[in-house]
């Protein structure tokens, strides 16, 4: 995105507006009955209304809590594991086959097992988020650390840095771009997983708001949590892009 000029960024609004107009037209002309497809204006109005509703905000807050708790745990596990796996032969030999086996497992299928051992509360949802967010971070860190130019490490070693010291002074900063890429993916994943877990079994959170609307056949209400999660995802993505610009000032540009 950063490579796009301002005008090109604006062009992107056109299809979104067109889609909204098409949607509005379909409702206005009576092609789609409002019970099946509410008008976008009605949806937006409800969204605005909900943004001022403490109950709705509480649901969003719970979703955010689970999302961040899971993401941060995944980060705290994934980065050290990835760094160690890439720099230590023994750890790598154990880690690589485990990742190869566990990465393609659809983690959502583990959710029933998590419910059985951790209950229906926050814990099972957070662990599910960890399970899904861990692999993008772990893989990105591992690949980034494995690709660090050995001569960077050598230069530091020659300048007097100890072998262990290079892990923090060279490998970690050199891997930072990959870690941020992995984190960006993990955040999107976390948004999606926490929402789905809340849809499957929950009494609170944005996913639950959607399920409740489905049960009560409130079509307008169904769209609101979907918009909310999209906005959350966009905001997190933007925050991370900002962090990237700050932290990676010296690295080559990447979008």
């Amino acid at each position: 995105m950063s490579a796009l000029s301002r005008s090109e960024g604006l062009i992107g609004i056109v299809p979104i507006l067109a889609l909204l107009l098409l949607w509005q037209a379909a409702v206005s002309t009576g092609m789609a009955p409002p019970a099946l497809l509410p008008s976008p204006l009605a949806v937006l109005a409800r969204f605005a209304q909900n943004m001022a509703d403490p109950a709705f905000l509480a649901h969003a807050g719970i979703t955010l809590y689970r999302l961040f708790a899971g993401f941060l745990i995944a980060l705290a596990l994934g980065v050290p594991l990835g760094l160690l796996g890439a720099t230590n032969r023994g750890v790598g030999a154990v880690l690589k086959p485990l990742v190869r086996v566990l990465a393609p497992v659809p983690k959502i299928a583990l959710y029933p097992a998590l419910i059985l051992s951790l209950g229906f509360g926050d814990a099972s949802k957070i662990v599910l988020v960890v399970a899904d967010a861990l692999f993008p971070i772990l893989l990105a860190t591992y690949q980034g650390a494995a690709m660090v130019e050995p001569k960077l490490v050598w230069s530091a070693r020659a300048a007097g840095t100890s072998r262990g010291g290079t892990l923090f002074k060279v490998i970690l900063p050199a891997t930072l771009p990959s870690i941020l890429t992995g984190s960006r993916i993990a955040l999107v994943v976390a948004c999606i997983v926490v929402f789905l877990a809340e849809m499957i079994t929950s009494t609170d959170g944005l996913g639950y708001v959607l399920v409740r609307a489905v049960r009560n056949f409130q079509t307008v209400e169904m769209f609101v949590p979907l918009i909310a999660i999209s906005v959350i995802g966009l905001a997190l993505n933007g925050a991370l892009a900002l962090a990237r610009r700050r932290l990676l000032a010296g690295f080559p540009d990447e979008d």
């Binding site: 992107g12 889609l19 999606i192 929402f195 489905v214 995802g233 966009l234 993505n237």
Partner: peptide
């Protein structure tokens, strides 16, 4: 570039939306 600029924001908006969560709505239709 133009086509990418047109489509990219739409994709970015839909990225964090869990597609399976659309199931109830799609089932209505």
């Amino acid at each position: 570039r133009l086509f990418a600029a047109l489509v990219n924001p739409l994709l970015m908006v839909s990225y964090p939306v869990p597609k399976a969560a659309l199931m109830p709505i799609i089932m209505l239709w």
